[in-house]
Simulated scan of single mutants.
Amino acid sequence: MSSALDLRDRVVLTDVSKTYASANGPTVALAPTDLVIEPGEFVSVVGPSGCGKTTLLQLLGGFLTPTSGDLLVGPDRVAGPSPERGVVFQSPTLYPWLSVRGNIEFGPKCRGVDRKTRRSEAERLLELVGLGAEVGGQRPYQLSGGMQQRAQIARVLINDPRIILMDEPFGALDQLTRERLQVELLRLWRQAGKTIVFVTHSVEEAVFLSTRVLVMSARPGRVIVDRRIELPGDSPDHPRELAVTSTPEFQSLKSELAQAIYDAHR
C-alpha cells in the first residue's frame, strides 16, 4: 500500500487531451489519455515524430493546459510550472553570464536561500553529477556538451523536485558521451529516489533506462503500449550496466517496442 508521501507524488491523467488551433482547423496532438505514473518510476515515452511525446511532457510540466480532462500530482491539479517538477531540456539552458556554480545556485538564490546553504548544496551536486568543485567556477561555454547537461541536471536537482521531466536530453550528444550519461543518470535516479519521465526517439535508450516504456501512436497521439521493463540483474541496490544491452532479453524487448512504433506509424 502506498504511503502518504507516495500518494503525494503519484501522477494521474484522466481523459487528458490537447488540441491546437491552426489555419487548417483544430489539430489533435494528444487524444484523450488515461495514465498513472507511480512514485519512483522511470518512465520513458517513445513513438514516431509528431506523436505528442513533447506535448505530454509539457502538459506534465504545466507549460500547456489540457483541452480536456484532469491532470493531478497527488491531490493537486497541475495549473502551471512548479519547482516540484524539474525539467531537463534537450539543449542545456544555462545562463552564459553565470558560472556553472552560479547557474546551479540560481533557483535557491531566487527563493531567498542563504549563500552558505546554497553553496554547500551546489558543491555536493557538482560531485554527485561527476563534475567536481573545480568546474564550478567555469563558464558554460568552457564545458563540453555532456558536461553542460550534467550541470543542467544539477541545476534541476538543487530545487529538490518531486518529479523530473526530461525531453531528449542526450539526443545531440555523441554515442560515447550519451552512454556515459545514461549510466550516470541511472545512478542519480537510484540515489535521489525521484520519479523520472523521459522522452526519447531511441528505443534502445528507453529500454536501458526505464522501469516502464510507453509507446505512442502517430497523431492524434495516444498510448498504445505500456510495457514494464525487467532485465537480467535488475536490483534495487545496483543500477543497470551497459553490458545488459547485449542480452537476449534486452534485444527481445527492443525488437518488440520497435515493431510497435513501426506498426503505429503505418
Rank of each mutant, 00 (worst) to 15 (best):
29 A>Y: 07
158 I>H: 01
87 V>M: 04
258 A>V: 05
8 R>Y: 02
181 L>I: 03
158 I>A: 02
129 V>I: 14
183 V>C: 10
2 S>N: 14
80 G>K: 10
227 R>G: 02
93 T>H: 05
107 G>K: 00
127 E>Y: 02
265 H>T: 14
252 S>H: 15
244 V>K: 04
35 L>R: 09
37 I>P: 11
198 F>Q: 07
185 L>Y: 05
202 S>G: 05
171 G>N: 04
239 P>N: 10
216 M>E: 13
203 V>P: 00
87 V>T: 02
35 L>E: 06
119 R>G: 11
67 T>M: 07
96 P>K: 08
191 Q>M: 12
143 L>K: 06
197 V>N: 05
265 H>L: 09
39 P>K: 13
198 F>H: 12
144 S>P: 04
247 T>W: 15
63 F>Y: 14
66 P>R: 12
163 I>H: 05
192 A>T: 15
154 A>D: 02
161 P>A: 00
133 A>W: 03
206 A>H: 08
258 A>D: 12
241 E>L: 10
158 I>R: 01
103 N>E: 05
180 R>M: 09
225 V>P: 04
125 L>W: 07
196 I>P: 01
58 Q>F: 11
115 R>W: 11
102 G>K: 04
74 G>N: 07
71 L>F: 06
187 R>W: 08
203 V>S: 00
126 L>T: 01
163 I>L: 15
221 G>T: 09
150 R>K: 12
227 R>I: 03
10 R>C: 11
130 G>E: 10
209 L>P: 01
110 C>R: 11
203 V>D: 00
40 G>P: 03
197 V>E: 03
22 S>E: 02
213 V>Q: 07
193 G>T: 05
147 M>I: 06
229 I>D: 10
1 M>Q: 12
152 Q>F: 00
193 G>H: 05
195 T>C: 10
68 S>E: 13
3 S>Q: 04
92 P>M: 08
203 V>Q: 00
255 S>T: 15
49 S>Y: 07
261 I>G: 05
74 G>Q: 09
93 T>M: 15
183 V>F: 13
17 S>Y: 10
70 D>C: 04
27 T>N: 14
130 G>C: 08
218 A>Y: 08
195 T>H: 06
51 C>S: 15
250 F>G: 04
69 G>C: 07
93 T>E: 11
77 R>Y: 03
120 S>W: 06
55 T>E: 05
52 G>E: 13
57 L>V: 12
30 L>R: 09
112 G>D: 09
243 A>L: 13
7 L>G: 11
54 T>L: 01
79 A>N: 13
256 E>R: 11
95 Y>P: 02
243 A>Q: 14
220 P>Q: 12
113 V>P: 01
68 S>N: 12
146 G>K: 07
103 N>R: 03
92 P>Y: 10
13 L>C: 14
201 H>K: 06
116 K>I: 12
33 T>I: 05
43 V>S: 03
147 M>Y: 06
142 Q>G: 15
115 R>F: 06
215 V>A: 11
210 S>E: 03
116 K>E: 13
226 D>Y: 14
92 P>L: 06
97 W>T: 08
34 D>P: 01
246 S>K: 12
160 D>Y: 02
176 L>Q: 15
198 F>I: 03
51 C>G: 09
